[in-house]
Amino acid sequence: MRPRFVILLVAVTALLAIVPIVGSPVMVQFGISTLLFAVLAQSWNIIGGFTGYPSFGNSVFYGLGVYGTAIAMAKFSLPFGVGLVCGAILAMLCALLIGLPVLRLRGQYFAIATLGLSVAMAAVFSNIEIAGANIGLILPLTRADGMFYELSLGLLVACVLCVFWISRSRFGMGLIAIREDEHAAASMGVNTTLYKTMALVLSALFTSIAGGIHAYFITFVDPASAFDSTLNVRMVIMTVFGGPGTVLGPVVGAFVLSAVYELLANWISTAAALLFGVVIVVAVIFMPRGIADLAAGIRRQGISYLLQNIRRYRL
């Protein structure tokens, strides 16, 4: 990576870091949810973008992060940090346990199996007494939006650095080989089962911490919102919009789509969801490989890149 680009990234991060000092409370709250979305998209990118396994189980990891933190804090009066660790361990164990059987499935079968899991989890947690059953749990109230913001930013930086390492490492090349052709990957010596499981566990780690932070931030959790599969859909959309299998694509995708949605909601609140859908459809038609590829494509061949995509993908 060029030094100038690194300096730019550091500068952007520094700018983001001072938002709680200079920005309005509304902006900080918008920032927290956007940063957490970026973490979720980037985490999904590890299993979906690099490894090529379209997971709909990431909302399970999110929910386990939410509940791990909530139970530790509300039921055992443990500190927030311990709660996050509990949530992360729970989610990573879950990734390990479901990964071994479910990662044997591919493509749409994998997607359906993981989707089923997230529906089942909501039902399971509705019946666990210690998790507040279907009523939910209330966490201690903290007025520290600045802290939540900086934590979210720190988590995003850690997550991006991790994906950057993946993109450069032997491990990452193995994941990409699995995405491109699993038989060929195995026959050249990639331990596919181990690699896929590790990718899912890493994805679960960051996803669950984001869940834990969000749980403490909103101070209330219930099964329906903790295991919400539409959250998983948003992770997929943001990653695909930004550029799956790239280091910065999912982050840019999360930032842009969060901003677009916020602007639409302010401008015309009733039709925001509809217009948001239109934005996505148009994006998929003109830039099916995401913003990351769009940037390179426009530089290479100008505006005809957009039209060429339509031809290339036979839309």
Binding site: R170, M173, G174, I176, A177, R179, E180, D181, H183, A184, M188, G189, V190, G245
Partner: peptide
């Protein structure tokens, strides 16, 4: 079974990273 999204070079480089 080529890795279609990768360059020819990275196809072979992946094999070089793994293999024996």
């Amino acid at each position: 079974k080529p890795f279609r999204d990768l360059t020819a070079l990275d196809n072979v480089a992946t094999a070089a990273l793994f293999g024996q």
